[in-house]
Design a protein around this nucleic acid. Structure first.
Lengths: 189, 189
DNA sequence: TGGGCATCATAACAAATGGCAATAAGCTCA
DNA sequence: TGAGCTTATTGCCATTTGTTATGATGCCCA
């Protein structure tokens, strides 16, 4: 089992036609591969998106830790629930939100997650992901996400540039996204 | 905690604009609401799609059962992994598959799951879901799914009518879908 | 320092999908 | 059985998004 300590990673799948879909972003504090051993075969990959620092915890150590400290076990379980909630939110985004709503929603999610781990400075946070990566996460093309980012900038909601996001008007961004923060189990403001 | 014994249900979310997105289908044998108590608030709903028979198991009974029978605990855990795999597959479908590929992929998934619980007859199985429901699961409109179903019928891959699906050419359906069965932990054929 | 890359930005056009409308078909219930 | 409803089917047009191409910008490293 692995835990990201610094940097960004993602879960992704490459389809037969070569397209990539990113299914999750992993930020510092996120764990992955809990289940690799149990899966007959892994149907997707995990990849670092920046240089990253990762901790490896053996299955045995993990189990011992969780038995000795029930609150750690509870935290792992809770993190698991949050991850599922995020996946469900992504399904909703992909299915029923327009491209601008999708982008806004993802930025809301990432901003909150970054804030939860102390990675924001006021209304700004580092987002070292290329537009291509964002496109592959949101099920759109790099060209189109560029159009959408321009629109969000012109509307004064947010702007992304040189590896960091500035949230210009959080309320507007939330409203565009139709963002409902409950699923992250964290509070906005 | 609830277990579906007969019929179909779904997890869904209604967005501010009134659109519905279905995030999962629940078939006989599927459990849900394991986590309702732990979530501050539920950010989505669960709904029966046909008349259904459901068993309720109290949290206490469940824990006792899982402690007494580790193989049941393992089965629950494994089912959980499959559910996550399905969610990831849905994200991939919504993000990077065309509408016809998405429909084919969902039908492959449902056919396999139905077969796993003995609900198929040869290459046919009951699918008592309206095209509107399928559309809300696949992130498309009912009109468009109708066009796609017609195309799949004309191609001789499958046909859906009167509440049941006939798989005319499984290999072709799998090929259209780009279906990779690993994630269900079951084998095709 | 400057060549070579990756990324970003934008335009013009093409394709996929949505929206609306009209009709047909099937189902439920009095 | 037939009225009234939901669901399915189809056509036409609008909109969103993808595709391809081109140039600009910035960055890394020889």
């Amino acid at each position: 089992m692995f835990i990201v300590l610094e940097g960004w990673a993602c879960r992704y799948k490459i389809l037969p036609n070569g397209a990539r879909q990113i299914m999750a972003f992993l930020m510092p504090g996120d764990a992955c591969d809990l289940h690799i051993k149990l899966l007959a075969e892994m149907d997707h990959g995990i990849q670092a998106l920046t240089s990253a620092l990762v901790a490896r915890v053996s299955q045995g150590d993990m189990q011992a830790l969780m038995q000795r400290h029930p609150n750690i076990a509870a935290a792992m379980y809770s993190a698991q629930l949050v991850d599922e909630g995020i996946m469900r939110a992504w399904i909703v985004s992909m299915g029923r939100r327009s491209s601008i709503e999708r982008v806004a929603h993802l930025i809301c999610e990432l901003y909150l997650r970054a804030r939860g781990i102390g990675l924001t400075y006021d209304d700004e946070f580092a987002l070292p992901l290329s537009q291509l990566v964002l496109a592959d996460a949101l099920g759109m093309t790099a060209v189109h996400i560029n159009r959408v980012l321009k629109e969000l900038r012109l509307e004064g909601a947010m702007s992304l540039g040189r590896g960091s996001v500035v949230i210009c008007d959080l309320a507007k961004l939330i409203q565009i996204a139709g963002f409902d923060e409950n699923y992250l189990h964290r509070r906005l403001r």
